[in-house]
């Protein structure tokens, strides 16, 4: 087509324009319809994705920080880091979770130890759960009556920070001193007799050495100490926004 636009007669131009316009109109309408639908789907999907991500992240963060607070060594229910104090745990309540452990008042939460609920705040319907591995300590009194064979020494089978030592040497035997590893803890020239409290270090195994003149049969030394029993438990924290 070599003629310019102005050369096309008026009638032909209008027919051409209207023809082109009308062919496009339904296509344009359908195209817009499709585009609108696709756009709506996209926006809906994006919205769902963002809300879900936000909600989950907030819940997860709340659950993690609540569980961190509970197992922290500064926490009122923990004896040491990750070691829970059973009696303090019984005192835990929903109000305490908010006041002492930084739970948001608007969030519902439950705290369970080995599946048993110990504290609840609000009503949890679903929510995000974080599990923590903790141990619980209990103490048991152990007694040891060493029979001395080669040397007057005894190694404590467990580490403990305090022992009660009862010396009842037979007549004619004088116990002059007691050493814990390399440190003299008891000393008397006149002879030791009776019960003594010793404090020891838990960072090393303790061997008690006795210095005595005379025989030391079984029963002349009795050692009592608190042995720590640890029991593994699972602390479950669920937070519902």
């Amino acid at each position: 087509m070599s003629r310019s636009r102005d050369d096309i007669p008026q009638a032909e131009r209008s027919r051409q324009n209207s023809g082109r316009g009308q062919t496009e109109l339904p296509a344009l309408g359908i195209a817009f319809l499709f585009l609108t639908v696709a756009l709506l789907i996209t926006v809906a999907a994006a919205d769902t994705a963002f809300t879900a991500a936000d909600r989950d992240a907030i819940e997860r963060q709340a659950a993690v920080s609540l569980s961190d607070e509970l197992v922290d060594e500064q926490s009122s229910v923990a004896a040491r880091q990750n070691v829970l104090n059973e009696s303090a745990l019984d005192q835990l309540s929903g109000t305490k979770l908010v006041e002492e452990h930084g739970l948001d008042d608007d969030h519902a939460a439950t705290v369970q130890l080995d599946g048993e609920t110990v504290a609840e705040h609000g009503e949890v319907t679903d929510g995000t759960t974080i599990e923590r591995i903790v141990s619980q300590e209990s103490y048991e009194l152990e007694r040891l009556e060493p029979a001395f064979a080669d040397s007057l020494s005894v190694s404590l089978p467990r580490r403990t920070d305090a022992v009660t030592l009862t010396l009842s040497p037979p007549p004619g035997t004088t116990v002059r001193s007691v050493r814990a590893n390399n440190e003299t803890v008891l000393k008397s020239e006149d002879g030791l007799d009776g019960s003594f409290e010793l404090s020891l270090s838990t960072l090393s195994t303790t061997t008690l050495w006795f210095e005595a003149a005379g025989s030391m049969p079984r029963g002349s030394v009795e050692i009592e100490y608190l042995a720590t029993e640890t029991q593994k438990s699972t602390l479950t924290v669920t937070v519902d926004e």
Binding site: A38, L39, I41, T42
Partner: peptide
């Protein structure tokens, strides 16, 4: 256009 929007949708989902 629709392909583009669907692409974005899939990216989100």
């Amino acid at each position: 256009g629709i392909l583009l929007l669907l692409g974005i949708t899939f990216a989100f989902t």
